[in-house]
């Protein structure tokens, strides 16, 4: 499955994302516990996804979020960039993030 297929069309390094308004979350030892209030669903995110969720305030593009994460994770930049885009796609698909117009 290609990164494009995971994320769906429209999400790339220039995309700006923000948290959906009905989610609530806290980070417990690096993992975000997220509640989608409308669906009464609880999800737990891994470290990268947790940081993405925290950083996605709707103002910075994914490339900037990847750059911020670069300082935290010892991963090759191109791998991190791809992970960030893929992860963002998962979070959008899961209803946690939305694309800012």
């Amino acid at each position: 499955m290609s990164a494009h297929e995971i994320t769906g069309p429209g999400i790339d390094s220039t995309t700006r994302l923000r948290r959906q308004s009905d989610i609530r979350f806290r980070v417990v030892d690096g993992e975000a516990v997220v509640v989608r209030q409308g669906a009464a669903e609880v999800l737990v995110l891994n470290e990268t996804a947790s940081r993405l969720l925290e950083l996605a305030d709707g103002t910075s593009p994914l490339s900037a979020l990847a750059a911020a994460l670069q300082a935290e994770f010892e991963v090759a930049p191109e791998v991190l960039a791809a992970d960030v885009v893929a992860g963002a796609g998962e979070l959008v698909a899961a209803g946690l993030l939305e694309v800012v117009g």
């Binding site: 509640v35 009464a40 669903e41 609880v42 999800l43 737990v44 995110l45 992860g87 998962e90 899961a94």
Partner: peptide, 9 residues
Amino acid sequence: GSAIGKGAD
């Protein structure tokens, strides 16, 4: 490889 684990309230 999902970044997400699911549960329910």
